[in-house]
Design a binder for these strands. Sequence first.
DNA 1: CACTGTGTTGCAAGGTTTTGCAAATCAGTT
DNA 2: AACTGATTTGCAAAACCTTGCAACACAGTG
Lengths: 342, 342
Amino acid sequence: MAGLAEIARAAGVSVSTVSRVLNRRAGVNDETRQRVLTVLAEMPYTPRGLGALQRTGVIGLLVPELSNPVFPAFAEALETRASRLGYASLLCNTRSASMREEEYVRMLLARGVEGMVFVSPEIANTGGEDVHGYYAKLLSDGVRMVFVNGGAPALDVPDIAVDEQLAGYLATRHLIELGHTRVGFVSGPARSLPSRLKRAGWAAALEEAGVRVDPAWVAHAPFGAEGGAEAAARLLDAPRARPTAVICSSDHMALGVLREAHRRGVSVPRDLSVVGFDDIPVASYCAPALTTLAQPIDEMARAALDELSLRLDPDGRDAPTGNYSRVFRPRLVVRESTAPPS
Amino acid sequence: MAGLAEIARAAGVSVSTVSRVLNRRAGVNDETRQRVLTVLAEMPYTPRGLGALQRTGVIGLLVPELSNPVFPAFAEALETRASRLGYASLLCNTRSASMREEEYVRMLLARGVEGMVFVSPEIANTGGEDVHGYYAKLLSDGVRMVFVNGGAPALDVPDIAVDEQLAGYLATRHLIELGHTRVGFVSGPARSLPSRLKRAGWAAALEEAGVRVDPAWVAHAPFGAEGGAEAAARLLDAPRARPTAVICSSDHMALGVLREAHRRGVSVPRDLSVVGFDDIPVASYCAPALTTLAQPIDEMARAALDELSLRLDPDGRDAPTGNYSRVFRPRLVVRESTAPPS
DNA sequence: CACTGTGTTGCAAGGTTTTGCAAATCAGTT
DNA sequence: AACTGATTTGCAAAACCTTGCAACACAGTG
């Protein structure tokens, strides 16, 4: 890893200046400081004394947010497993912060974090930016990482994921078996890969049952209960052929659907069946209790951490190369929010 | 802060040996290594190069767990506020880890965290151990910190808290006004200070109404939905004079009460009124929607971070000395889980 | 145009940490 | 008891980072 001198050379300044920037001393021109910081971001600098922080068994857990209860659930499961393996975890909420995920990761690395688990990382959004290249760069910098529900088959990173397409399929199947044919999809944003996969499963199940899929049955909205309510409102307002059932991208969105249905006097499950996804703890407490597809959170957490610790262990350097990914089957949990159409 | 030389002197070895221990080099006797590590734990060492990590605007947020949704809610509110003030946050779950809170704090400090917010810290448990002394030591080491619902009036640390006693009082009052007289208390562990304060408010409200308080009306159980169910079971099994209403230490426990009531066919609110505490997001989704006392989470987060940033800001060193604490009033939110006794 | 003050930078001295090396220690063997 | 080899430790030199200081640049002012 680079020393002060190298950084200085790359930035075209003396080591003293670099030192001053690092220590936030006054007396450095803003422009110069910026130049040094840029170089610093590219060839990350680890102070000598940081040897003291290396290999202390600290890992980073990155989740996009905490308001959807799946993420605290994942975080807790991952932490429990991590601590059993002797690692302490630092949890980072990448969306609430002013920093983007990338900066957060740099910050963690500068703090001597040995490896990281990305839960639903940005790469799962098939947006325009080159997040792919960013993860590839981290990887080539030797950062040890694991994805959970990452959806990045092209990267040489293990991905521990539920089969989202199967989830969409099973949810829709369940509704079809109950007798529904007009099944709506309360979906997250269009660029979210998990939502697209669920949609594929949903469409496959409907077509298999001989139902012509109507694109108007898909309502995109931001993740979260608010988004769910908003999407539900749009679907329930559909002039002709309004759905008798909906599947949702997440339980969290499903809660919003329940609320909106309640607000409009649409009775669940009599007038509308609802299937969630995740099986968050709340799902069994809400009214009506939510039929949902459970992610095997504990098993996934276990797999993710085993995978990571293999990569951290200096011995096991040989074993895991290649895109070793595990796909878990979601499990249908039938509760009270689904019933035959009236 | 101590340098290598001082550590070496204290451990009775040469600086080289300390250096070797810190960098995990081979060639140090296990016994010697242990001695050095012990000294290191007592006079924490910050590498020089860590200047690079100092004042990077990273703060630590310590919460006891994540399964009770108040804690993710607090975490998110704190993070949002922190990022607005230019700080990045590291979230730590102190209970799920193998480390105790103390070790976690040391770990964070070694990572150049500037300050920390303790949410419901261990000091709020009036257990036997000398946690008090531990926080005092952190304080005298110059660690900047703030408590949220800390309950440690003797320490020179700002404490941003809800008035727990008032919460217990208002909850009980509400039930008394509805006509209840036999009001149970589903309480967290006896050593939890917040639970004791709520109990005091509960007792005060009952006595004020001329009701003789029966100690059998208090059921202690571990925090969480399981604990709530367990405590509810005990109260509902009470042979004579079983309560017509209960207040709970948290919404999370209240969810357990709802579940247990449902399991036994006890209808809420017809046969049993339930008041929670916290107003977690789920409270409005569960069945029946929970009457509860809301903590003003956003305002508290704001206050906690303003308080902390005052202490971090090198300028404002003058202003905040003394045990500056803010007590927030909980707000009664009436939903569907309370009604007059039948 | 010179003078002054302010701000920025590199040099070199000084302090701290790392590491090569040799001395010391210890257990097992002859 | 002496020898051997492995391990551990401190010394001192080397590498590295920090900081005081002087040099330089630049703008404003008399």
